[in-house]
């Protein structure tokens, strides 16, 4: 297993599966993430975009080691060049690796938000928290309110503050922006950008791909539990011709400002994954080869793609 010292987090051939009861006592394995590759370097914002239910949040839980007991993680997880074991995950989470959870239901309903954001840190970072709240445009009394007294967007900003108050080297933000107005979302991402420029790293799981284009360095596109493409953010700004995988192109075209056209069909369910390329059932360019074997990851034009049909000829695009 090769190890790179310049990476902060490296995932190699990661797979996550769940043991489920079928009928009576018979169990079956359900694989929800398969051969996933992802690297995060210091000073970088890596955005993870992709379909709902493609395992983006599970990836966050796998890195932090907070999956339920019936889950099995296989593959290699490296943090700062060393294997990320269960003990190490437990030691690092909350201090070295911080999470911004996806749901506002993660806030303790019986605890005032100010105290929640401060956490168990001694001395209490009250002044820093107040500055952060003010920066996010939260009114001064927010710290004295309970979560149910906040609007959706305010609760999000409180959640975000809880992670930002730690001195974590890696922040995993699981959809931090829904419910926030565009200005607030931009402010939140500006904070992430500052952290990244300071040498820390952010793994940003998001559906707001237009915001991700602007702030992230690289974008990993997820589909059915694996990455189909990792591309520099600039390629997404340029449009479908600069992108490599047909699914990334479809994502771009479904944006309200670029056509709003969905593609037919649905993401395959984990019980019945296709044998070959996971995107083949919906792909207009599939061949027999695509349906038989899973395409390997290839490096093309500074990005990585899993697709047989993409050869990179004629200025890079033979699949439209």
């Amino acid at each position: 297993m090769e190890q790179k010292t310049d990476t902060l987090l490296e995932l190699h051939d990661l797979s996550v599966s769940f043991r489920m009861y079928e009928r009576g006592a018979s169990q079956r394995e359900l694989t929800v993430i398969s051969d996933l590759h992802l690297t995060v370097r210091p000073g970088e914002i890596v955005a993870v975009a992709g379909s709902s239910g493609s395992g983006k949040s599970l990836l966050a839980s796998a890195i932090l080691g907070i999956l339920p007991d019936n889950a099995t993680v296989r593959g290699h997880l490296h943090y700062k060049g060393e294997e990320l074991t269960a003990e190490r995950q437990q030691a690092l989470r909350g201090t070295e690796i911080a999470l911004v959870p996806q749901s506002v239901a993660y806030l303790d309903p019986l605890m005032k938000t100010g105290a929640q954001a401060d956490g168990h840190k001694k001395p209490r970072p009250t002044v820093r928290r107040e500055q952060l709240f003010a920066r996010f445009g939260l009114p001064k009394q927010t710290g004295r309110l309970y979560p149910f007294q906040l609007s959706g967007g305010m609760a999000r900003r409180v959640l975000l503050s809880t992670a930002l108050l730690t001195d974590a080297a890696l922040i995993i933000a699981d959809e931090p922006t829904p419910g926030m107005s565009t200005e607030q979302a931009v402010e939140a991402l500006t904070v992430f950008r500052e952290l990244a420029d300071d040498g820390r790293a952010v793994l940003l799981i998001t559906h707001d791909i237009d915001l991700a284009f602007t702030f992230a360095d690289r974008i990993a596109v997820f589909y059915a539990g694996t990455t189909v493409e990792t591309a520099p953010a600039a390629d997404f700004k340029e449009g479908p011709d600069a992108l490599r995988h047909p699914y990334s192109k479809a994502l771009w075209r479904a944006l309200p400002q670029n056509g709003f056209t969905p593609i037919d069909g649905f993401q395959p369910v984990a019980v019945r994954l296709p044998a070959g390329c996971l995107y083949a059932p919906r792909c207009p360019h599939k061949t027999a080869e695509c349906e038989e074997k899973v395409p390997p990851v290839r490096e093309i034009r500074g990005g990585e793609v899993r697709c047989y049909r993409f050869t990179g000829k004629n200025g890079g695009c033979d699949v439209s």
Binding site: A49, G50, S51, S52, S54, Q102, G152, E175, P178, G179, H207, I209, A250, L251, A254, L255, P256, F260, T261, P262, I263
Partner: peptide, 17 residues
């Protein structure tokens, strides 16, 4: 009320259509 904020853009376009 913000029904598609947590959806990917393809699903968002599908549901809205």
């Amino acid at each position: 009320d913000e029904i598609s904020a947590m959806l990917d853009v393809i699903t968002q376009a599908q549901i809205w259509n």
